[in-house]
């Protein structure tokens, strides 16, 4: 059994289900990427795993423990970190304060963690007294990821971390995400830039209409002709 698994998840916001029995799993030190066409339920699947959406069927387990009933806040305490797609920083607060707020639930000394985040994203250390809202798009995403890392999560979930940033910044961000995964954190990520994301993925999930269409390693999906034709633009 995987470290984090959302099993046979079914649910949605209103009467109609968006997720139709989809299963997503990720292990420690691994990167799992969810791709698929618009409206496939990628972000919804992510939110369901994080508890921001009540499931009608299925369950979510973390480290073998059923956490389906927990609120997002409780999941944070249990070692899950989440980076929303938008509004993922505190714009009027400085970079350092953003990281501090990330560590809000921690009662121990979080200085070492902050140093680790600064090592990972050196530019943040440089700008740590600046309001986060004044940074560039890519730097803000770094702040957002850094904030989520401050709880020392075992799972980091990213909702389209590269939306709206330039290709160069995207590559750099992916490099950092690989580095984070190497420290033993499980990474689950939703991505629009499917090709680049699958490139770094250990496991890829192709969702269509809220259900798993293809599940395989990133490399395998990239060479799968059906996947290439339908989802990767040839």
């Amino acid at each position: 059994m995987s470290f984090l698994i959302g099993e046979a998840m079914t649910g949605g916001y209103g009467a109609a289900d968006i997720l139709n029995g989809c299963t997503i799993a990720v292990d420690k030190g691994e990167i799992a990427v969810i791709v698929g066409p618009n409206g496939a339920g990628k972000s919804t699947a992510m939110k369901a795993i994080f508890g921001m959406l009540a499931l009608r069927k299925g369950r979510v387990c973390l480290d073998g423990r059923d956490i389906t009933a927990l609120s997002p806040q409780e999941r944070v305490v249990h070692g899950m970190g989440f980076v929303p797609q938008t509004h993922n920083i505190f714009p009027s607060m400085t970079v350092e304060e953003n990281l501090e707020m990330g560590a809000f639930i921690r009662r121990d000394d979080f200085r070492p963690t902050m140093e680790q985040v600064y090592e990972l994203f050196p530019v943040l250390k440089q700008k740590r007294r600046q309001p986060a809202g004044e940074l560039s798009g890519g730097q803000r995403q770094q702040v957002a990821v850094g904030r989520a890392l401050m709880t020392r999560p075992q799972v980091l979930m990213l909702d389209e971390p590269t939306a709206g940033v330039s290709p160069i910044v995207m590559d750099e961000l992916f490099d950092r995400i690989i580095e984070v995964a190497r420290t033993g954190i499980a990474i689950l990520m939703v991505e629009q830039n499917a090709k680049q994301a699958l490139n770094i993925a250990d496991t890829g999930y192709v969702l269509v209409q809220g259900a798993n269409r293809y599940t395989d390693s990133g490399e395998a999906l990239l060479v799968n002709p059906d996947v290439r034709r339908s989802f990767l633009g040839g």
Partner: peptide, 16 residues
């Protein structure tokens, strides 16, 4: 934490 809540309520909730 109050400034954070004022800045971005949802993210403040996520941060505990």
């Amino acid at each position: 934490s109050m400034r954070a809540y004022s800045d971005n309520e949802d993210l403040a909730l996520l941060s505990g």
